[in-house]
Nucleic acid binder design. Sequence first.
RNA 1: GUUUCGGUAGCUCAGCUGGAUAGAGCAUUCGCCUUCUAAGCGAACGGUCGGGGGUUCGAAUCCCUCCCGAAACGCCA
Length: 564
Amino acid sequence: MDYRQQIAEAIHTELNEHFELNEINLLLEKPKHTEHGDIAFPTFQLAKLFRKNPAQIASELGDKITSPLISKTEIVGPYINFYLNKEAVSQAVINEVIVDKGNFGQLSIGNGGNVPIDMSSPNIAKPMSMGHLRSTVIGNALSNILKKVDYSPIRINHLGDWGTQFGKLITAYKKWGSEEAVKADPIKELLTLYVKFHDEAEDDSDLEDEGRAWFRQLEEGNEEAVAIWKWFREESLKEFEKVYNRLNIAFDSYNGEAFYNDKMTDVVALLEEHNLLTVDRGAHIVNLDKYDLNPALIKKSDGATLYMTRDLAAALYRHKNYDFSQSLYVVGQEQSNHFKQLKAVLKELEFDWADDIHHIPFGLITKDGKKLSTRKGKVVLLEEVLDEATAQALQQIEEKNPALPNKELVAEQVGVGAVVFHDLKNDRLNNFDFTIEEVVQFEGETGPYVQYTRARALSILRKAGIDTVSPSENHALSDDYSWEVIKLIHDYPNTVKRAYENFEPSIIAKHAIQLAQAFNKFYANVRVLDEHSEKEARLALVFAVTELLKEDLRILGVQAPDEM
RNA sequence: GUUUCGGUAGCUCAGCUGGAUAGAGCAUUCGCCUUCUAAGCGAACGGUCGGGGGUUCGAAUCCCUCCCGAAACGCCA
């Protein structure tokens, strides 16, 4: 049910000569204060039309508007405030969730269209940092949101698995590395080799040449070079998988930079066919003056291709392979310019689908106010953060619920959940300075708070001996605490829609927090298990809340332990 | 310098397409576990919504301007 729509219809029957139904719907608003009712109609916009003052219009119009859903109408100055029939609405809303469960809020916007999502994309031989976490969890949540509005998301891990750094790495490995050391702790060892290479190269310029030579060997398919590269890639991927498993995220494709190597010449040829390439200072570029952008670099002066070339190849490949209705790139906002260029070049190639490409930028994570940099050793390692969060969660369990079964598992779910939720709860464009204290919190507006709320709700159902609820005529509720919960449940489909339209997981996270807050107030003030005429309805509400909180968390990629 | 984001309570942030008295969380202080998990609930404290103009019946929200911060601005990705 959609009570807003029904109220709009009720008003429309009185104003149908002057306004369209959807115009009225847009005028309706949700009052900020409960003493202004559940839904309000301001009459300012009618003043000019009727040549009367808004307050007068409100008082004349107010009583004419009737609906079985309206229990009371109050005129406050220029506002007509409607109070809804709590019993009727709560019964309908609760039963809807009970029937739909996790599918509640499912919308049919996307018609099943494919949406490849470029996300996560760590660099081989480098550890995953908090920065990769953002792309990973935002991309994952967006995938879930897209699925929820009937798109078919395709999670693509566009690995950084190619480039001159592999020449350097091979050089360093052959000079100082060993198979055992790499196997023991691949990423750490490879990183050490990489850093050592840069240190040594400061006094020994031959090293750089050697690195370049090895990369050339790699490009030309030298057996030894390719074998080492493959091995590094596999070992790195194994390490990444550990993190992805902890985050409960799987990918549909790991086609990274290397995958597009043999597709670059076609891109260059295509650009040439369209006469888009010009040579400037020895480099091949596409001029983008008419888009007010600096030129896109396609080939370096030494003939090597670039990031842009590869992303063009990837865009073409994805279009051909997935026939996408949209193509998303969850990449930091510092690359906005690059994606503007990418779209501009595709437009120059006269591909109308260039408009279906969306860069989904996110804010920068800093440490002590400074940008993180792998080379300078200024990194916040994701695994360490997850470990710390899990350790603290376990300690919390030992303090608060030592009898809990599966403590380690729950600690992992809560600790990782805290980190993931923290990353998703604010506008994705916000920058933030990393501190472990801020990321790993269990109180207030946090993932664990939402998880805990659900666990307490489930506990009630367990005590009542209930594990599911069927729709019933007895699910009407009348108290104010449940009413606040009901309104938030009712808002859910609209919340999903907004999250999709803005590509913004935080909208889901905020809904989860609000729902948890409303439910905790209910929990503190309304006894569910006591004998009461509304006991069955209250249990049904508790059940609906557990379902919806679980769904909110699922979309965000956060686990929902039944007990904690 | 140009472009793009941002500036709301001590800190971190909400505030959806402009609407009725600007809201949370954290921190601080104080209440509430013989009753469904106190990772909770309640209360107090705390704001010239960066400054100044403008549009409007109405501006934290839209426009202009200035100040401050971050990022990006051709051979890295």
